[in-house]
C-alpha cells in the first residue's frame, strides 16, 4: 500500500510541477493545489498506513494509527485552502489590472 501511494505521490508531483511551469496563471494555481494534495498523501504515508485503529481513545483498541501526521495534515489542508484562495484572488486582481493572465507578459517594468 505504501509503495503504490508513494508512486501516486510521485505522479501527482510530476503533474503539479508540469502545471507550475505553465504560462497561464490559473494553471499555476491548479499546480499548487495538486502539489498540496501530493504532500498530504506523502505525510500520511510517512506515518505508516492502515496500522492500528482510528486515533480515538474511545475505541479502546490495542494500537492506534499514528495521529501526528493527521494533525499536521489537518493544519496543512486549511492553510493550503487559504493560500489557494489568496492566489486565486491575486490572479483575478492581476487580470483586472493588467488584462492578462499570461505570466510571460507579466514581467514588471523594463527598467527595474
Amino acid at each position: 500500500m505504501e509503495t503504490i501511494i508513494t508512486i501516486l505521490v510521485g505522479v501527482l508531483v510530476t503533474v503539479a510541477v508540469y502545471l507550475l511551469l505553465s504560462k497561464s496563471l490559473v494553471r499555476v494555481i491548479l499546480g499548487t493545489a495538486i502539489l498540496s494534495h501530493a504532500v498530504h498523501l506523502l505525510l500520511m504515508t510517512m506515518g505508516g498506513l492502515k496500522k492500528g485503529a482510528v486515533p480515538l481513545l474511545g475505541e479502546n483498541a490495542e494500537s492506534y494509527t499514528d495521529a501526528l501526521p493527521q494533525a499536521l495534515i489537518l493544519t496543512a489542508i486549511v492553510i493550503s485552502f487559504a493560500v489557494t484562495s489568496f492566489l486565486l484572488v491575486l490572479a483575478y486582481r492581476t487580470y483586472k489590472e493588467t488584462g492578462s493572465d499570461n505570466l510571460a507578459t507579466l514581467r514588471g517594468f523594463k527598467d527595474e
Partner: peptide, 20 residues
Amino acid sequence: KGIIAISVGTVVTVLALVVQ
C-alpha cells in the same frame, strides 16, 4: 518541462521510498 517534472516526481518518490 516534461523532463523537469518527471525528474522531480521521481526524486520525490525515490526519496520517500528510501525514507520509509
